[in-house]
Design a protein around this nucleic acid. Sequence first.
DNA 1: GCCTTTAGTTAGTGATAACTCACTAACATA
DNA 2: TATGTTAGTGAGTTATCACTAACTAAAGGC
Lengths: 202, 202
Amino acid sequence: MTRTRKTAEERQQQIVQAVLDLLPTTPVESLSTTVIARQVGLTQAAIFRHYPTKNAIWAAVLNEIRKRARGSWDEALAGATTPLDRIRAVLAAQLTLITEFPAIPTLLFTSGRVEAEKDIRPVHLAVMRDLRVLLVAELGAVRAEGQVSQPASDQDCADLLMGLIQGTVLRWTLTGHGFDLVAEGRRLIDIQLSLFAKGNLR
Amino acid sequence: MTRTRKTAEERQQQIVQAVLDLLPTTPVESLSTTVIARQVGLTQAAIFRHYPTKNAIWAAVLNEIRKRARGSWDEALAGATTPLDRIRAVLAAQLTLITEFPAIPTLLFTSGRVEAEKDIRPVHLAVMRDLRVLLVAELGAVRAEGQVSQPASDQDCADLLMGLIQGTVLRWTLTGHGFDLVAEGRRLIDIQLSLFAKGNLR
DNA sequence: GCCTTTAGTTAGTGATAACTCACTAACATA
DNA sequence: TATGTTAGTGAGTTATCACTAACTAAAGGC
Protein backbone atom coordinates (compact mmCIF):
# COMPACT_ATOMS: atom_id res chain seq x y z
CA MET A 1 0.00 0.00 0.00
CA THR A 2 1.93 2.99 -1.26
CA ARG A 3 -0.89 5.25 -0.26
CA THR A 4 0.19 8.85 -0.51
CA ARG A 5 -2.08 11.47 0.86
CA LYS A 6 -2.82 14.39 -1.41
CA THR A 7 -3.44 18.01 -0.61
CA ALA A 8 -7.00 19.24 -0.21
CA GLU A 9 -6.72 21.39 -3.31
CA GLU A 10 -5.60 18.46 -5.42
CA ARG A 11 -8.47 16.38 -4.11
CA GLN A 12 -10.98 19.09 -4.88
CA GLN A 13 -9.87 19.21 -8.49
CA GLN A 14 -9.87 15.42 -8.58
CA ILE A 15 -13.45 15.32 -7.34
CA VAL A 16 -14.61 17.81 -9.97
CA GLN A 17 -12.80 15.84 -12.66
CA ALA A 18 -14.36 12.62 -11.39
CA VAL A 19 -17.82 14.11 -11.76
CA LEU A 20 -17.01 15.33 -15.28
CA ASP A 21 -15.74 11.87 -16.17
CA LEU A 22 -18.74 10.10 -14.72
CA LEU A 23 -21.49 12.37 -16.02
CA PRO A 24 -21.62 11.12 -19.62
CA THR A 25 -22.25 7.57 -18.46
CA THR A 26 -24.04 8.11 -15.18
CA PRO A 27 -27.50 9.61 -14.80
CA VAL A 28 -27.31 12.74 -12.71
CA GLU A 29 -29.49 11.43 -9.92
CA SER A 30 -27.45 8.23 -9.67
CA LEU A 31 -24.28 10.23 -9.32
CA SER A 32 -24.12 9.94 -5.54
CA THR A 33 -21.26 10.89 -3.28
CA THR A 34 -20.57 7.16 -2.94
CA VAL A 35 -20.07 6.85 -6.70
CA ILE A 36 -17.87 9.94 -6.79
CA ALA A 37 -15.80 8.61 -3.90
CA ARG A 38 -15.30 5.28 -5.64
CA GLN A 39 -14.13 7.08 -8.79
CA VAL A 40 -11.64 9.19 -6.84
CA GLY A 41 -10.52 6.27 -4.72
CA LEU A 42 -11.65 7.52 -1.37
CA THR A 43 -14.35 6.64 1.10
CA GLN A 44 -17.68 8.36 0.78
CA ALA A 45 -17.17 10.32 3.97
CA ALA A 46 -13.87 11.74 2.74
CA ILE A 47 -15.70 13.66 0.06
CA PHE A 48 -17.27 15.81 2.74
CA ARG A 49 -13.86 16.83 4.02
CA HIS A 50 -13.30 18.64 0.72
CA TYR A 51 -16.78 19.91 -0.05
CA PRO A 52 -19.21 20.81 2.73
CA THR A 53 -22.31 19.77 0.79
CA LYS A 54 -23.06 18.00 -2.43
CA ASN A 55 -24.43 21.21 -3.88
CA ALA A 56 -20.98 22.70 -3.41
CA ILE A 57 -19.65 19.95 -5.65
CA TRP A 58 -22.24 20.75 -8.33
CA ALA A 59 -21.37 24.42 -8.13
CA ALA A 60 -17.67 23.64 -8.53
CA VAL A 61 -18.37 21.37 -11.49
CA LEU A 62 -20.53 23.95 -13.22
CA ASN A 63 -17.95 26.66 -12.72
CA GLU A 64 -15.29 24.42 -14.19
CA ILE A 65 -17.50 23.83 -17.21
CA ARG A 66 -18.09 27.53 -17.57
CA LYS A 67 -14.35 28.17 -17.38
CA ARG A 68 -13.64 25.61 -20.06
CA ALA A 69 -16.38 26.98 -22.29
CA ARG A 70 -14.99 30.49 -22.06
CA GLY A 71 -11.53 29.16 -22.79
CA SER A 72 -12.56 27.34 -25.91
CA TRP A 73 -14.56 30.32 -27.17
CA ASP A 74 -11.61 32.64 -26.71
CA GLU A 75 -9.41 30.25 -28.60
CA ALA A 76 -11.95 30.07 -31.42
CA LEU A 77 -12.31 33.83 -31.59
CA ALA A 78 -8.57 34.33 -31.78
CA GLY A 79 -8.23 31.84 -34.60
CA ALA A 80 -10.71 33.45 -36.99
CA THR A 81 -10.48 36.72 -38.88
CA THR A 82 -13.88 37.76 -40.21
CA PRO A 83 -16.96 38.13 -38.00
CA LEU A 84 -18.76 35.39 -39.92
CA ASP A 85 -15.82 33.06 -39.42
CA ARG A 86 -15.74 33.93 -35.76
CA ILE A 87 -19.40 32.97 -35.43
CA ARG A 88 -18.74 29.69 -37.18
CA ALA A 89 -15.66 29.07 -35.04
CA VAL A 90 -17.30 29.86 -31.71
CA LEU A 91 -20.32 27.68 -32.40
CA ALA A 92 -18.12 24.85 -33.64
CA ALA A 93 -15.97 25.23 -30.53
CA GLN A 94 -19.03 24.93 -28.34
CA LEU A 95 -20.10 21.76 -30.14
CA THR A 96 -16.60 20.33 -29.91
CA LEU A 97 -16.52 21.07 -26.20
CA ILE A 98 -19.80 19.25 -25.82
CA THR A 99 -18.54 16.15 -27.61
CA GLU A 100 -15.52 16.21 -25.31
CA PHE A 101 -17.67 16.72 -22.24
CA PRO A 102 -21.10 15.26 -22.88
CA ALA A 103 -21.64 16.14 -19.26
CA ILE A 104 -22.52 19.64 -20.38
CA PRO A 105 -25.79 18.89 -22.16
CA THR A 106 -26.60 16.29 -19.56
CA LEU A 107 -26.49 18.97 -16.93
CA LEU A 108 -28.08 21.53 -19.20
CA PHE A 109 -31.04 19.37 -20.01
CA THR A 110 -31.50 18.21 -16.46
CA SER A 111 -33.74 20.33 -14.34
CA GLY A 112 -31.84 18.82 -11.47
CA ARG A 113 -32.42 18.21 -7.81
CA VAL A 114 -34.60 20.60 -5.97
CA GLU A 115 -31.91 22.33 -4.01
CA ALA A 116 -29.28 22.09 -6.69
CA GLU A 117 -31.50 24.24 -8.87
CA LYS A 118 -30.39 27.29 -6.99
CA ASP A 119 -26.75 26.55 -7.68
CA ILE A 120 -26.92 25.04 -11.12
CA ARG A 121 -29.48 27.03 -13.05
CA PRO A 122 -27.75 30.41 -12.69
CA VAL A 123 -24.57 28.98 -14.12
CA HIS A 124 -26.46 27.54 -17.08
CA LEU A 125 -28.10 30.84 -17.74
CA ALA A 126 -24.77 32.62 -17.42
CA VAL A 127 -23.11 30.34 -19.96
CA MET A 128 -25.97 30.76 -22.40
CA ARG A 129 -26.06 34.48 -21.90
CA ASP A 130 -22.31 34.71 -22.44
CA LEU A 131 -22.57 32.84 -25.71
CA ARG A 132 -25.52 34.90 -26.86
CA VAL A 133 -23.79 38.18 -26.08
CA LEU A 134 -20.83 36.98 -28.07
CA LEU A 135 -23.02 36.05 -31.03
CA VAL A 136 -24.90 39.34 -30.98
CA ALA A 137 -21.60 41.22 -31.00
CA GLU A 138 -20.28 39.30 -33.98
CA LEU A 139 -23.58 39.57 -35.83
CA GLY A 140 -23.41 43.30 -35.24
CA ALA A 141 -19.94 43.29 -36.73
CA VAL A 142 -21.24 41.40 -39.75
CA ARG A 143 -23.95 43.99 -40.19
CA ALA A 144 -21.51 46.86 -39.68
CA GLU A 145 -19.25 45.48 -42.35
CA GLY A 146 -22.07 46.49 -44.60
CA GLN A 147 -21.79 43.87 -47.30
CA VAL A 148 -24.20 41.53 -45.64
CA SER A 149 -27.03 42.76 -43.51
CA GLN A 150 -29.51 40.37 -41.96
CA PRO A 151 -33.22 40.79 -42.52
CA ALA A 152 -33.81 40.24 -38.81
CA SER A 153 -32.30 41.93 -35.77
CA ASP A 154 -28.98 40.74 -34.40
CA GLN A 155 -30.77 39.49 -31.31
CA ASP A 156 -33.22 37.45 -33.34
CA CYS A 157 -30.44 36.01 -35.46
CA ALA A 158 -28.55 35.10 -32.31
CA ASP A 159 -31.65 33.38 -30.93
CA LEU A 160 -32.07 31.42 -34.13
CA LEU A 161 -28.47 30.27 -33.95
CA MET A 162 -28.72 29.42 -30.26
CA GLY A 163 -31.85 27.40 -30.96
CA LEU A 164 -30.10 25.62 -33.77
CA ILE A 165 -27.24 24.63 -31.46
CA GLN A 166 -29.50 23.59 -28.61
CA GLY A 167 -31.87 21.69 -30.82
CA THR A 168 -29.07 19.82 -32.51
CA VAL A 169 -27.46 18.97 -29.19
CA LEU A 170 -30.79 17.81 -27.80
CA ARG A 171 -31.32 15.59 -30.81
CA TRP A 172 -27.77 14.26 -30.45
CA THR A 173 -28.36 13.50 -26.79
CA LEU A 174 -31.72 11.81 -27.28
CA THR A 175 -30.43 9.67 -30.13
CA GLY A 176 -27.63 8.44 -27.91
CA HIS A 177 -24.94 10.34 -29.83
CA GLY A 178 -26.19 8.79 -33.02
CA PHE A 179 -24.41 11.20 -35.37
CA ASP A 180 -21.38 13.48 -35.61
CA LEU A 181 -22.48 16.48 -33.61
CA VAL A 182 -19.80 18.87 -34.85
CA ALA A 183 -20.24 17.98 -38.51
CA GLU A 184 -24.01 18.13 -38.40
CA GLY A 185 -23.90 21.35 -36.43
CA ARG A 186 -21.45 22.99 -38.84
CA ARG A 187 -23.64 21.98 -41.75
CA LEU A 188 -26.79 23.48 -40.27
CA ILE A 189 -24.94 26.60 -39.12
CA ASP A 190 -23.67 27.17 -42.65
CA ILE A 191 -27.17 26.79 -44.03
CA GLN A 192 -28.56 29.22 -41.48
CA LEU A 193 -25.80 31.76 -42.06
CA SER A 194 -26.33 31.54 -45.80
CA LEU A 195 -30.01 32.20 -45.20
CA PHE A 196 -29.07 35.30 -43.24
CA ALA A 197 -26.83 36.39 -46.08
CA LYS A 198 -29.31 35.77 -48.86
CA GLY A 199 -32.00 37.53 -46.94
CA ASN A 200 -30.75 40.96 -47.93
CA LEU A 201 -30.02 40.29 -51.57
CA ARG A 202 -33.52 40.82 -52.76
CA MET B 1 -67.58 8.82 4.84
CA THR B 2 -69.25 8.25 1.51
CA ARG B 3 -66.16 6.56 0.18
CA THR B 4 -66.94 5.01 -3.14
CA ARG B 5 -64.47 2.67 -4.70
CA LYS B 6 -63.57 3.39 -8.28
CA THR B 7 -62.72 1.02 -11.06
CA ALA B 8 -59.11 0.21 -11.80
CA GLU B 9 -59.34 1.92 -15.18
CA GLU B 10 -60.66 5.11 -13.64
CA ARG B 11 -57.88 5.06 -11.07
CA GLN B 12 -55.23 4.55 -13.71
CA GLN B 13 -56.41 7.62 -15.58
CA GLN B 14 -56.61 9.51 -12.30
CA ILE B 15 -53.02 8.61 -11.47
CA VAL B 16 -51.76 9.78 -14.86
CA GLN B 17 -53.72 13.00 -14.49
CA ALA B 18 -52.33 13.49 -11.00
CA VAL B 19 -48.79 13.24 -12.33
CA LEU B 20 -49.57 15.70 -15.13
CA ASP B 21 -51.05 18.09 -12.58
CA LEU B 22 -48.13 17.78 -10.20
CA LEU B 23 -45.29 17.95 -12.70
CA PRO B 24 -45.30 21.71 -13.32
CA THR B 25 -44.89 22.45 -9.63
CA THR B 26 -43.03 19.37 -8.43
CA PRO B 27 -39.47 18.48 -9.43
CA VAL B 28 -39.43 15.15 -11.19
CA GLU B 29 -37.27 13.42 -8.62
CA SER B 30 -39.49 14.62 -5.77
CA LEU B 31 -42.53 13.19 -7.46
CA SER B 32 -42.63 10.02 -5.41
CA THR B 33 -45.39 7.45 -5.29
CA THR B 34 -46.32 8.89 -1.91
CA VAL B 35 -46.90 12.32 -3.44
CA ILE B 36 -48.89 10.84 -6.29
CA ALA B 37 -51.00 8.84 -3.85
CA ARG B 38 -51.73 11.91 -1.77
CA GLN B 39 -52.85 13.79 -4.90
CA VAL B 40 -55.17 10.96 -5.93
CA GLY B 41 -56.41 10.44 -2.39
CA LEU B 42 -55.17 6.92 -1.89
CA THR B 43 -52.50 5.24 0.16
CA GLN B 44 -49.08 4.84 -1.36
CA ALA B 45 -49.48 1.09 -1.55
CA ALA B 46 -52.68 1.41 -3.56
CA ILE B 47 -50.73 2.97 -6.43
CA PHE B 48 -49.01 -0.34 -6.98
CA ARG B 49 -52.32 -2.11 -7.41
CA HIS B 50 -52.85 -0.07 -10.58
CA TYR B 51 -49.31 0.16 -11.92
CA PRO B 52 -46.80 -2.63 -11.27
CA THR B 53 -43.81 -0.27 -11.12
CA LYS B 54 -43.20 3.43 -11.06
CA ASN B 55 -41.71 3.17 -14.52
CA ALA B 56 -45.05 1.93 -15.74
CA ILE B 57 -46.56 5.17 -14.46
CA TRP B 58 -43.97 7.21 -16.35
CA ALA B 59 -44.66 5.26 -19.51
CA ALA B 60 -48.40 5.85 -19.16
CA VAL B 61 -47.85 9.55 -18.56
CA LEU B 62 -45.59 9.89 -21.58
CA ASN B 63 -48.04 8.06 -23.79
CA GLU B 64 -50.81 10.36 -22.66
CA ILE B 65 -48.65 13.34 -23.54
CA ARG B 66 -47.92 11.85 -26.93
CA LYS B 67 -51.64 11.32 -27.51
CA ARG B 68 -52.43 14.91 -26.60
CA ALA B 69 -49.65 16.20 -28.82
CA ARG B 70 -50.97 14.27 -31.79
CA GLY B 71 -54.45 15.54 -31.07
CA SER B 72 -53.41 19.17 -30.99
CA TRP B 73 -51.37 18.79 -34.17
CA ASP B 74 -54.28 17.24 -36.01
CA GLU B 75 -56.51 20.06 -34.89
CA ALA B 76 -53.96 22.60 -36.09
CA LEU B 77 -53.54 20.89 -39.44
CA ALA B 78 -57.28 20.82 -40.01
CA GLY B 79 -57.62 24.52 -39.28
CA ALA B 80 -55.11 25.78 -41.83
CA THR B 81 -55.29 25.79 -45.59
CA THR B 82 -51.85 26.43 -47.10
CA PRO B 83 -48.80 24.31 -46.30
CA LEU B 84 -47.01 27.33 -44.83
CA ASP B 85 -49.97 28.07 -42.61
CA ARG B 86 -50.08 24.44 -41.56
CA ILE B 87 -46.43 24.63 -40.50
CA ARG B 88 -47.11 27.77 -38.52
CA ALA B 89 -50.22 26.24 -36.97
CA VAL B 90 -48.61 22.95 -35.99
CA LEU B 91 -45.60 24.61 -34.38
CA ALA B 92 -47.81 27.10 -32.55
CA ALA B 93 -49.98 24.21 -31.39
CA GLN B 94 -46.96 22.45 -30.00
CA LEU B 95 -45.89 25.58 -28.13
CA THR B 96 -49.40 26.08 -26.81
CA LEU B 97 -49.50 22.49 -25.62
CA ILE B 98 -46.24 23.06 -23.80
CA THR B 99 -47.53 26.15 -22.03
CA GLU B 100 -50.57 24.12 -20.98
CA PHE B 101 -48.41 21.21 -19.86
CA PRO B 102 -45.02 22.53 -18.82
CA ALA B 103 -44.51 18.94 -17.72
CA ILE B 104 -43.52 18.14 -21.28
CA PRO B 105 -40.22 20.03 -21.43
CA THR B 106 -39.56 19.16 -17.83
CA LEU B 107 -39.67 15.51 -18.75
CA LEU B 108 -37.90 16.11 -22.02
CA PHE B 109 -35.01 17.93 -20.45
CA THR B 110 -34.70 15.49 -17.59
CA SER B 111 -32.53 12.52 -18.28
CA GLY B 112 -34.42 10.64 -15.59
CA ARG B 113 -33.63 7.50 -13.69
CA VAL B 114 -31.49 4.88 -15.29
CA GLU B 115 -34.25 2.39 -15.79
CA ALA B 116 -36.84 4.96 -16.68
CA GLU B 117 -34.64 5.95 -19.58
CA LYS B 118 -35.63 2.79 -21.38
CA ASP B 119 -39.28 3.66 -21.06
CA ILE B 120 -39.18 7.39 -21.43
CA ARG B 121 -36.60 8.14 -24.09
CA PRO B 122 -38.30 6.15 -26.86
CA VAL B 123 -41.50 8.10 -26.34
CA HIS B 124 -39.60 11.38 -26.54
CA LEU B 125 -37.93 10.30 -29.71
CA ALA B 126 -41.23 9.17 -31.15
CA VAL B 127 -42.89 12.50 -30.46
CA MET B 128 -40.00 14.41 -31.98
CA ARG B 129 -39.89 12.09 -34.98
CA ASP B 130 -43.63 12.48 -35.49
CA LEU B 131 -43.36 16.24 -35.51
CA ARG B 132 -40.39 16.21 -37.83
CA VAL B 133 -42.09 13.90 -40.32
CA LEU B 134 -45.05 16.23 -40.30
CA LEU B 135 -42.84 19.25 -40.95
CA VAL B 136 -40.93 17.56 -43.74
CA ALA B 137 -44.19 16.67 -45.43
CA GLU B 138 -45.51 20.21 -45.26
CA LEU B 139 -42.19 21.66 -46.37
CA GLY B 140 -42.34 19.29 -49.32
CA ALA B 141 -45.79 20.61 -50.11
CA VAL B 142 -44.46 24.16 -49.94
CA ARG B 143 -41.73 23.24 -52.37
CA ALA B 144 -44.16 21.37 -54.62
CA GLU B 145 -46.39 24.40 -54.78
CA GLY B 146 -43.54 25.86 -56.74
CA GLN B 147 -43.84 29.48 -55.80
CA VAL B 148 -41.45 29.19 -52.89
CA SER B 149 -38.62 26.71 -52.90
CA GLN B 150 -36.17 26.52 -50.05
CA PRO B 151 -32.47 26.77 -50.67
CA ALA B 152 -31.93 23.85 -48.31
CA SER B 153 -33.46 20.37 -48.27
CA ASP B 154 -36.80 19.80 -46.60
CA GLN B 155 -35.07 17.75 -43.96
CA ASP B 156 -32.62 20.51 -43.17
CA CYS B 157 -35.38 23.09 -43.00
CA ALA B 158 -37.31 20.81 -40.66
CA ASP B 159 -34.23 20.46 -38.46
CA LEU B 160 -33.82 24.21 -38.33
CA LEU B 161 -37.43 24.63 -37.30
CA MET B 162 -37.20 21.85 -34.73
CA GLY B 163 -34.09 23.46 -33.29
CA LEU B 164 -35.84 26.79 -33.15
CA ILE B 165 -38.70 25.28 -31.18
CA GLN B 166 -36.50 23.30 -28.84
CA GLY B 167 -34.12 26.15 -28.24
CA THR B 168 -36.93 28.56 -27.48
CA VAL B 169 -38.57 26.10 -25.13
CA LEU B 170 -35.27 25.47 -23.38
CA ARG B 171 -34.73 29.19 -22.94
CA TRP B 172 -38.29 29.54 -21.67
CA THR B 173 -37.74 26.75 -19.16
CA LEU B 174 -34.39 28.01 -17.92
CA THR B 175 -35.68 31.56 -17.50
CA GLY B 176 -38.51 30.24 -15.36
CA HIS B 177 -41.18 30.96 -18.01
CA GLY B 178 -39.89 34.51 -18.24
CA PHE B 179 -41.64 35.35 -21.52
CA ASP B 180 -44.64 34.43 -23.65
CA LEU B 181 -43.54 31.20 -25.25
CA VAL B 182 -46.18 31.09 -27.98
CA ALA B 183 -45.72 34.71 -29.02
CA GLU B 184 -41.94 34.55 -29.05
CA GLY B 185 -42.04 31.21 -30.87
CA ARG B 186 -44.45 32.52 -33.51
CA ARG B 187 -42.23 35.54 -34.06
CA LEU B 188 -39.09 33.48 -34.56
CA ILE B 189 -40.92 30.96 -36.73
CA ASP B 190 -42.13 33.74 -39.02
CA ILE B 191 -38.60 35.08 -39.33
CA GLN B 192 -37.23 31.64 -40.11
CA LEU B 193 -39.96 30.93 -42.66
CA SER B 194 -39.36 34.28 -44.32
CA LEU B 195 -35.68 33.37 -44.54
CA PHE B 196 -36.65 30.15 -46.29
CA ALA B 197 -38.86 32.11 -48.66
CA LYS B 198 -36.35 34.83 -49.46
CA GLY B 199 -33.67 32.30 -50.04
CA ASN B 200 -34.93 31.48 -53.51
CA LEU B 201 -35.67 34.97 -54.72
CA ARG B 202 -32.17 35.76 -55.74
C1' DG C 1 12.43 12.48 17.59
C1' DC C 2 8.51 14.83 19.03
C1' DC C 3 4.24 17.43 18.04
C1' DT C 4 0.88 19.88 15.54
C1' DT C 5 -1.93 19.81 11.56
C1' DT C 6 -5.01 17.58 8.60
C1' DA C 7 -6.25 13.89 5.04
C1' DG C 8 -8.64 9.95 5.50
C1' DT C 9 -11.31 5.91 7.74
C1' DT C 10 -14.92 3.36 10.26
C1' DA C 11 -19.15 3.26 11.66
C1' DG C 12 -22.81 5.28 12.23
C1' DT C 13 -27.33 8.81 11.76
C1' DG C 14 -32.19 9.94 10.07
C1' DA C 15 -34.85 10.50 5.99
C1' DT C 16 -36.95 8.72 2.14
C1' DA C 17 -37.21 5.92 -1.92
C1' DA C 18 -39.81 1.87 -4.27
C1' DC C 19 -42.03 -2.00 -3.36
C1' DT C 20 -44.46 -6.21 -0.60
C1' DC C 21 -47.74 -8.70 2.03
C1' DA C 22 -51.43 -10.09 4.91
C1' DC C 23 -55.62 -8.48 5.52
C1' DT C 24 -60.31 -5.83 5.04
C1' DA C 25 -64.32 -4.26 2.98
C1' DA C 26 -66.96 -2.69 -1.02
C1' DC C 27 -69.13 -4.50 -4.98
C1' DA C 28 -71.43 -7.53 -8.42
C1' DT C 29 -73.97 -11.48 -9.21
C1' DA C 30 -76.35 -15.83 -8.54
C1' DT D 1 -78.55 -13.56 1.47
C1' DA D 2 -74.34 -15.96 0.47
C1' DT D 3 -70.07 -15.85 -2.27
C1' DG D 4 -66.27 -14.79 -5.24
C1' DT D 5 -63.70 -10.79 -6.90
C1' DT D 6 -60.93 -6.85 -6.34
C1' DA D 7 -59.98 -1.92 -4.67
C1' DG D 8 -57.75 -0.27 -0.86
C1' DT D 9 -55.24 -0.33 3.84
C1' DG D 10 -51.48 -0.51 7.34
C1' DA D 11 -47.44 -2.01 8.59
C1' DG D 12 -43.72 -3.50 7.12
C1' DT D 13 -39.08 -4.54 3.96
C1' DT D 14 -34.62 -3.39 1.83
C1' DA D 15 -31.77 -0.12 -0.25
C1' DT D 16 -29.74 4.24 -0.80
C1' DC D 17 -29.36 9.01 -0.04
C1' DA D 18 -26.60 13.15 2.11
C1' DC D 19 -24.26 13.95 6.01
C1' DT D 20 -21.71 13.42 10.88
C1' DA D 21 -18.80 12.06 14.89
C1' DA D 22 -14.95 9.84 16.74
C1' DC D 23 -10.91 8.17 15.68
C1' DT D 24 -6.21 7.14 13.00
C1' DA D 25 -2.12 8.09 10.76
C1' DA D 26 0.66 10.55 7.33
C1' DA D 27 3.16 14.93 6.50
C1' DG D 28 6.08 18.48 7.77
C1' DG D 29 8.17 22.14 10.74
C1' DC D 30 10.97 22.49 14.83
